[in-house]
Design a protein around this nucleic acid. Structure first.
Lengths: 219, 219
DNA sequence: ACAAAACGGTTGTAAATACAACGGAAGGAA
DNA sequence: TTCCTTCCGTTGTATTTACAACCGTTTTGT
C-alpha cells in the first residue's frame, strides 16, 4: 500500500497532509487495497457499503443496467477520485449502481466509521482529512447537479454541447479528451449511439466541432 | 428565530440535539432567518454562496431556465430539508441553479465556516451537527443519483414509472402526493407536458395508475 | 361574485429519436 | 499474415417526442 502514498498525496482526500502522515494514517483509517482486472466489478448494485473508496490506479465507470439490457453510465472515476460517498450515512440503503473497472485498477477502501471518528493518538491530520472528505462529497454533489444539467437537455445535440463545453471548461482547453468511446458516451448521455453519431457528424459539417476518436475540439 | 426551534429539532441537521442546545447554537452558528413570498428567488444562478440553508417553512423548487426559456426543475425542497450544500467547498464556483419559493417560505442561513469550525465554548453538540450535516450531504448525493436514474430513462412512460414508484417507496404507500403540478412534473422529468399528459392518460386507461390532481395511486 | 389567470387534457403535425442492420476500418491474438 | 472482435459511421423505418393551438375547468385575486 505504501507504494501509493505519492498518489494519495495528490488526492482531494489527503490534500494538505504530508507523506509520512499519510503512511501513518493508512493503518489508523483501516485502509485496505484491492486490485481489479479490466471488466471486473468493484461494487454491485444492491450491495451494502460501509467504506469510502479512493481510486489509486486505473479508471472506473459507475453504471447501471436495467433488466431490458439498457445500460446507462452515471459517471467516470479517475485516479485520485473518491467514490461510494453517497452511502456513508448509516441509514443509506443498498447501492443503486455497479462500479466496473474500465482497465486494470487498484482501489483503497477506508472504513467510514474510522474516518469519521477522530482518533486521539497518532493522526495529527485526521480533522483535515474529515474536512477534505466533506468538501469532496459536496463537490461530488455539484458534479451530479452538473450532470443533471446535461441530462435535462431535450435534444442529442444540446446534450453533446452541454457536456463537451463543460469538459472544455473543466479541462481548461478547447481540445479535450473524453474517457468514453462512442457507445459509452451515448450511455453516459442517455441517447442512441447511432443518432448521436449522426449528430456529431452534422456538428462537424457545420464546423461546430472537430473530433477524432475520443479527442474533441470545440470551435 | 426561536419560534422555529421545534421545526429545527426535527431536521436531519439537528437530529439528536435538544431544544435548549439548538437555541444556544443558533447564535453560535451565525444563523439568520429570511422570509420569502411565493415566487420570490431565494438564490439565483451565478451567485456565490457561503452558507448552508435549511428550509424552516414553506416549500422551494430548485430550477434552471436556459436562455431559450426552457425550464427544468432539479429538485423540490420541503420543510426541514437542507440545500445549498453543493457549494460549501471553498473552491466551488457560482450557483448552477435558481431556488424559488413555491409558497411563502422561511429559510435559515448558517455560515459554513462557523458550522465547520467547532467552537470551543458553549455548543456541546457542535460535532453532532457537523456529522449530521455530513450524512445529510451524502444522502442528498444519493437523491441526485436517484434522479439521474429517472432522467436516464428513454421514454416518458419509463420516466413516470421510475419517478412514481420511487416516490411510492419513499412515502411508503401506493397512494402518493407529489409536490408538482403537471407542468412542473414535466419540467422535473424533462419531458413535454402535453406528451406526458397523454402518457398519463394511457397509463390510466391500461389500469397502471389512477390519479387526480397531484395525488396518484399505483396499481 | 366576477374577471383573469392558471391548469390540464386533447388534437394534429413536424421533428427527433430509437432500433435494427450493414460494412469498412482499426486493433488484437494466434 | 489471417482471423476475429470491436468500433463507429451510415441508412431506412417505426416509434416517440416536441410544439403549437384550443378549450373547458379550476383556482386566484379583488
Amino acid at each position: 500500500m505504501e507504494e501509493y502514498v505519492p498518489v494519495l498525496r495528490r488526492t482531494k482526500l489527503f490534500s494538505g497532509v504530508g507523506d509520512e502522515d499519510i503512511s501513518a494514517m493508512l493503518s489508523c483509517l483501516g485502509a485496505r487495497l484491492k486490485r481489479y482486472k479490466k471488466g471486473e466489478y468493484v461494487l454491485r448494485q444492491g450491495e451494502h457499503l460501509s467504506d469510502i473508496l479512493v481510486l489509486a490506479e486505473g479508471s472506473l465507470h459507475i453504471r447501471r443496467d436495467d433488466y431490458w439490457g439498457n445500460r446507462s453510465i452515471l459517471g467516470y472515476v479517475g485516479v485520485g477520485e473518491i467514490f461510494g460517498e453517497a452511502y456513508i450515512a448509516p441509514e443509506s440503503g443498498a447501492l443503486l449502481n455497479d462500479v466496473v473497472a474500465v482497465e486494470d485498477s487498484s482501489v483503497f477502501f477506508f472504513d467510514v466509521r474510522r474516518v469519521m471518528t477522530t482518533c486521539s493518538s497518532a493522526c495529527r491530520f485526521h480533522t483535515t482529512v474529515v474536512q477534505n472528505l466533506f468538501f469532496a462529497v459536496s463537490d461530488k454533489n455539484r458534479g451530479l447537479v452538473q450532470k443533471l444539467d446535461y441530462m435535462s437537455r431535450r435534444t442529442t445535440r444540446e446534450k453533446l454541447i452541454a457536456y463537451l463545453s463543460e469538459e472544455a471548461k473543466r479541462q481548461n482547453s478547447a481540445d479535450i479528451v473524453i474517457p468514453f468511446n462512442r457507445q459509452q458516451l451515448a450511455d453516459y448521455l442517455s441517447v442512441d449511439r447511432s443518432a448521436m453519431s449522426n449528430e456529431l457528424g452534422r456538428m462537424r459539417d457545420e464546423g461546430l466541432i472537430e473530433f477524432n476518436k475520443n479527442r474533441f475540439r470545440l470551435n
